[in-house]
Amino acid sequence: MDRFTMEKVRKTFTNGETKEDILKGINLSLMEGEVTALVGASGSGKSTLLTIAAGLQSATEGTIQFDGQNIATMKSDQIRKIRASKFGFVFQFAHLVPFLTVKEQLLLMLDIADSKQKKVDKKKEVDRILKLVGMEHRKDSYPTSLSGGEKQRVAIARAIIHKPKVLFADEPTASLDSKRSREVMALLRDITKTYHIATLLVTHDEEMLIFTDRVIKMLDGKILAESN
């Protein structure tokens, strides 16, 4: 089922006199329970596409349909609410809050998403998700004491604890070695399936494509090919 669709999305950056078309008419849909990979040469516009889809920057033209609404025309506070409650984010670096323990990071995310659960239930949920990403034994640790792979798993836990509908991941394995990368990718795939999330994932690493359901190849701001 279509969860998220972009139609004729364009992005133009104006640099003084010169205008540069970075996205030149993107059509794309994400399905629930599927990991869609976005690949392509550096500078082809993958990150730009992902951040526009996630409402972190605006499109110059086009529509972005989610939940029956057009995100492209929403006010920034409306988009913020959607990001907080319906989207999840994983980036190249975990970007955890340095002064919160693993458990507190996740509780914070539930607060941000304005979860109405009771405190006990929130705590149970945190334990459950930490078990899922294999980090329950480190729930009282601070980020500085975790390895890169562990941080990334906590970041994934934070990205999914509020049960988002769409998960955006920009090179989540770029800072990890190949063993850790495979673990993280398997985790993302499993979570996508279990929670029926629509996941959009940018990656440079061909090896990781085995964990994805669809691959979209970009070149120069356009979608070149789509394959299953």
């Binding site: 996630a54 506070d77 913020r80 990001r83 907080a84 984010f89 970007h95 340095p98 934070r158």
Partner: peptide, 12 residues
């Protein structure tokens, strides 16, 4: 950096 991330995940 932290503020940026917090804003991205929806903190006001």
């Amino acid at each position: 950096g932290l503020y940026g991330i917090l804003k991205a995940i929806g903190v006001k």
